[in-house]
Design a protein around this nucleic acid. Structure first.
Lengths: 219, 219
DNA sequence: CACGCCCCTTCAGGCTGCCGTCAGCTTCGC
DNA sequence: GCGAAGCTGACGGCAGCCTGAAGGGGCGTG
């Protein structure tokens, strides 16, 4: 697990670094916000430990900027006892936990473990298909990392293709899947939904077999 | 740690104030209930020390009003030996502890330290979700630092979303969670509870996926 | 036991936005 | 180049959802 430590106190920083290293994690330690920004942008961390009082600004600003960029890396705030308002602001700004200085190093280890567990503990199986990531349980689709909203019909259709990757599905089959036993639809509904799916997921997801039906494109 | 001291005896009040200050905490000292109410409403305290006999009313009323507002700040009652019934009433009204006058100042420090440890040391793990802070163990939710009261059904529903953040949950799944094997509800109960949750926690907490269900919104 | 309080459920009215339809256009096969 | 098949923008209807209000039931209180 890679951890970014942002702390200007050299004594405390060294102690934390050594403690984390003793736990078998790897640490990058910076003492300034600008260095922290660079590190967070270039490296993917599993956890950030953030002091709020730093020589070149308040840690809150860093945290807000991080979240504004869409970065969801868990953040634990390190704060002094008298900075309660900062702590609340920090939690509101998207921090995951806080530790009050002076803190027990063992407690730090425990918190790190807790955060690690919280974030690695709930993995729904992900299906990857080209630029698409599909979480079937959550019914969510991400395209190039960005979430895509599908409507009920669109999802049902997409699911039908995912269930039989590469297989040709006729319009009749798809209608049956979407409308199960319902009256035959006498229009181009399937075509319309395929069109909408392509617009949302990319034109290559579904291939047309003229006169036959559709099939899931190759990743 | 910020402490609110409500005590009309000037000698005792000064002694307590000095003792707390010597421990390195900060104190606001008021001698009347109306001033106490203003202070508690405008400032976020970590602990309240409450005398029960005050010139403008009984401290119990203040405590009840505090809890009725949903404020969960720990309260220690300061009471004379002969006010046993008040003390019991105080504990029932939501006080966390009591001290019998005359009390040893060292004991006061110890109680304060205990509360401090309980609340800032290692409290229950806190889940943060946008402006919400959730203590799963205590079943309490704070929004922008202010406590929010959830009813049983509301909490059960919210918990279901928290257990699977980002995952889509159909009404059927939610009903099963809320009514476990009970008779099928043939109404829009889930919709109503979702509506109430949104009103209490903010409209963005729960997102509607038309025709499919609901999911926890992004922080 | 009667009463009051709060929570849950139900209902109804209003609103949102998804879906089906259609028409005009494009693409494909021959 | 022609017809058939497929694509897609536009739009109205209605299913699905939201929410205020009211009634019933459970629980604690006097």
């Amino acid at each position: 697990m890679r951890i970014l430590l942002i702390e200007d106190d050299t004594v405390l920083g060294a102690a934390v670094r050594d403690q984390i290293a003793a736990d078998g994690q790897s640490v990058d330690w910076v003492t300034r916000l600008d260095a922290a920004g660079d590190a967070a942008r270039t490296t993917s961390y599993d956890l950030i430990l953030l002091d709020l009082m730093l020589p070149d600004g308040r840690g809150i600003a860093f945290l807000k900027a991080l979240r504004a960029r869409g970065d969801v890396t868990p953040v634990i705030i390190l704060t002094a006892l008298d900075q309660i308002s900062d702590r609340i602001e920090g939690l509101n700004a998207g921090a995951d936990d806080y530790l009050v200085k002076p803190f027990d190093l063992a407690e730090l280890s425990a918190r790190i473990g807790s955060v690690a567990r919280r974030y690695s503990g709930n993995p729904n199986p992900l299906v990857t298909h080209g630029p698409l990531q599909i979480d079937l349980a959550a019914r969510s689709v991400h395209r190039d990392g960005k979430p895509v909203q599908l409507t009920a019909r669109e999802w049902a259709l997409f699911e039908a293709f995912l269930a039989r990757p590469g297989q040709l599905l006729s319009k009749a089959q798809l209608e049956e899947k979407l409308y199960a036993f319902a009256a035959e639809v006498e229009s181009n509904t399937i075509e319309v939904h395929v069109s909408r799916l392509r617009k949302k997921l990319g034109s290559a997801v579904i291939e047309t077999e003229r006169g036959m039906g559709y099939r899931l494109g190759k990743p």
